[in-house]
């Protein structure tokens, strides 16, 4: 795996956690109840912490002197490598938790594999992050089951959230040249195996939540390659990056 490819691979990991972390942080002060507000803020904090580790390493691999902050705040939409799922808007609380569960499940399986990575730095970050993500998954899957198998109102909202987000699942498993190089080098996991395990666990979870998987095989893509992000990412970056854009180099 060339350093350029490793840089791309690390950007994907770090941009997923950065973009989802920022999205989840948008709930701070707005969640339905205080406990949920705190839980969402804590989840966001873990994801941003993981971003510092992934993007920090990405900057070192790139060797151009860019820090995690530089990568987070000074790149534009087309340079982001997160999957489209993570940049989708929060919607209602149910939609946020559905997005979280769909991501956490992938994140948990991926980090478990990355813990065995041939790149020791990737492995140590993955071991650290996996402990936090297991906890995120426990909460998001419990919430999806609780709301799916809840009232007619909550069930309807969770089914609508699943239908809306369904086309964004496939991108997480569609390997490209970067993923193939990572697999060859023993750095990254076999996405096909991850997908098989993901689909099995998801089916079980949706069953418990009394939700039905849509019969729609089409999947959106273009996020992790940077080819075609959704309109939502640009709007999010205007919020996330405005301070460094308005006051370049500002520090605490």
């Amino acid at each position: 795996m060339s350093p350029e490819q490793l840089f791309e691979y690390l950007l994907r990991l770090g941009d997923n956690t950065l973009v989802l972390g920022h999205r989840v942080s948008e709930w701070c002060g707005h969640a339905p109840v205080l406990e949920e507000d705190i839980a969402l803020a804590n989840t966001a904090l873990d994801l941003i912490g993981q971003t510092q580790m992934w993007l920090g390493y990405a900057g070192e691999v790139e060797g151009q002197g860019r820090s995690a902050d530089d990568l987070a705040f000074l790149r534009d939409v087309w340079d982001f490598r997160n999957v489209l799922l993570t940049e989708q808007p929060n919607g209602d609380f149910g939609q946020t938790m559905m997005r979280q569960m769909l991501f956490d499940l992938w994140h948990d399986l991926t980090l478990e594999s990355l813990s065995e990575s041939s790149d020791p730095r990737v492995a140590e970050i993955a071991v650290k992050a996996a402990k936090e993500v297991r906890y995120h998954l426990e909460r998001s899957s419990d919430t999806v089951i609780g709301l799916g198998d809840g009232t007619a109102e909550s069930h309807g909202r969770m089914q609508a959230a699943l239908d809306l987000l369904w086309p964004y699942i496939g991108e997480m498993f569609t390997p490209d040249a970067v993923d193939d190089a990572a697999l060859q080098a023993g750095i990254g996991p076999d996405m096909v195996q991850i997908e098989t395990r993901y689909r099995a666990r998801l089916a079980e979870l949706l069953g418990a939540a009394t939700l039905s998987a849509p019969d729609a095989p089409f999947s959106q893509k273009g996020g992790k390659s940077g080819m075609r992000h959704s309109e939502h990412l640009g709007h999010m970056l205007t919020q996330m990056q405005w301070l460094q854009r308005a006051y370049p180099g500002a520090t605490w």
Binding site: E35, T43, L45
Partner: peptide, 13 residues
């Protein structure tokens, strides 16, 4: 259990 998370990342309520 009230919540899996608490006032700091290391605590639950």
């Amino acid at each position: 259990r009230i919540s899996q998370f608490g006032s700091t990342p290391c605590k639950a309520q």
